[in-house]
C-alpha cells in the first residue's frame, strides 16, 4: 500500500475527540450539556446559549443529502488520481450539517435522499466518516 497522500485532519485540542471517536467507529458531534444544542464543527462555548459545558455525543449515523458536487480539479496533488470525486453535504438526523465524501457514485442521488455513514480507515490513526446512499432493501 502506498503512503496516504491526501490532507489529514489537524488534530487541535478542540476537535481531537471527534477524530478519536471516529477511529473507534463512532460518529459524534458536540452537544451542550445545558441547552442540548448539537453542533459541528466544535466550538469553545455553545453557540446557542454560550455555556462552557459541552460533551461529545454519538449520533445515529443517518442523515439526508442536502447537496453534492464533483471535483474535476485537484487542489491537492493527492487527489489527482481520484478525479472526478464526489463531495456531499449531509444534514444529520440530529441537526448539524457535515461535508464529506459520497461513496458509491451519485446515481439515484436527489435532494433529501437518505444517507448513512461509512467509516474509511485511511491511515493507522485516522478514520474518515464518509457517506453512502441508503438503498431500499
Amino acid at each position: 500500500m502506498t503512503a496516504y497522500s491526501k490532507p489529514l485532519p489537524r488534530l487541535d485540542p478542540l476537535i481531537r475527540p471527534f477524530w478519536e471517536h471516529a477511529k473507534a467507529g463512532r460518529l459524534t458531534v458536540q452537544r451542550c450539556d445545558d441547552c442540548g444544542d448539537r453542533h459541528f464543527p466544535p466550538s469553545p462555548i455553545c453557540p446557542a446559549c454560550n455555556s462552557d459545558a459541552q460533551s461529545w455525543m454519538p449520533v445515529s449515523g443517518r442523515g439526508t443529502l442536502e447537496s453534492w458536487v464533483a471535483f474535476h480539479r485537484a487542489y491537492w496533488p493527492g487527489y489527482q488520481p481520484d478525479l472526478p470525486y464526489d463531495v456531499c453535504l449531509v444534514r444529520l438526523a440530529e441537526g448539524p450539517l457535515l461535508v464529506s465524501n459520497l461513496l458509491g457514485g451519485t446515481e439515484g442521488a436527489k435532494l433529501g435522499a437518505a444517507v448513512e455513514v461509512v467509516f474509511d480507515d485511511v491511515t493507522d490513526t485516522i478514520t474518515l466518516p464518509k457517506w453512502k446512499l441508503t438503498r431500499a432493501t
Partner: peptide, 19 residues
C-alpha cells in the same frame, strides 16, 4: 473539510447551485 477534499469558494457555490 480538507480531509474530504472539499475546498475553494467555487466548490461552495457549486454546492449551492446543485441545491
Amino acid at each position: 473539510w480538507d480531509s474530504f477534499g472539499f475546498t475553494s469558494p467555487g466548490a461552495a457555490h457549486a454546492m449551492m447551485f446543485r441545491r
